[in-house]
């Protein structure tokens, strides 16, 4: 089967990969680029575990074809920590016990960062709405919401 040669930027690095037309960006990230931090929970855009940023836009990478990534910029969980420092959201998730099994955590962190970029001072309800596309089965979301609000406070310097 002929494969497409795709050039893209992932977490700031120029990358190339091969993919079949029907393969998703998620499969390309995980199987071709070995960036397995992005997870597949459903493959139908209903759980958010595969959330990544595509040209600055929050998307489910299971609903994007690999070939559509040509020339585009992708950010994944692997690029979230900067140097030795965790992103404030990552740190607050640890401090607030906002993860258990952790399979949803990469997607939730990506979605939470996207939320805080749009809205640095969200209410509890806005955090819940902003994360409604990300299923978590372990936590009941309580500590996730608290962690996002705490990270928002810290990022605002409040």
């Amino acid at each position: 089967m002929a494969r497409h040669h795709v050039r893209a930027t992932v977490n700031g690095d120029a990358v190339e990969f091969l993919c079949e037309t029907g393969q998703t960006l998620l499969e390309a990230l995980r199987d071709e680029l070995r960036l397995t931090g992005t997870k597949e929970g459903c493959g139908t855009g209903d759980c958010g575990a595969c959330s990544v940023m595509l040209d600055g836009r929050l998307v489910c990478s299971c609903l994007v074809l690999g070939v559509e990534a040509e020339g585009r910029s992708i950010e994944t969980i692997e690029g979230m920590a900067v140097g030795e420092a965790l992103h404030p959201l990552q740190q607050k998730f640890l401090e607030h016990a906002a993860l258990q099994c952790g399979i949803c955590t990469p997607g939730i962190l990506i979605a939470a960062r996207a939320l805080l970029e749009r809205n640095p001072d969200p209410t509890e309800a806005e955090v819940r709405d902003g994360l409604a596309g990300n299923l978590c089965r372990c936590t009941g979301y309580h500590k996730i919401v608290e962690a996002v609000l705490a990270a928002a406070r810290e990022m605002r310097g409040a």
Binding site: G45, R57, V59, C60, A132, G133
Partner: peptide
């Protein structure tokens, strides 16, 4: 229409 992620596409 779906989640924020879905509406992004």
């Amino acid at each position: 229409i779906g989640s924020l992620q879905v509406k992004g596409r």
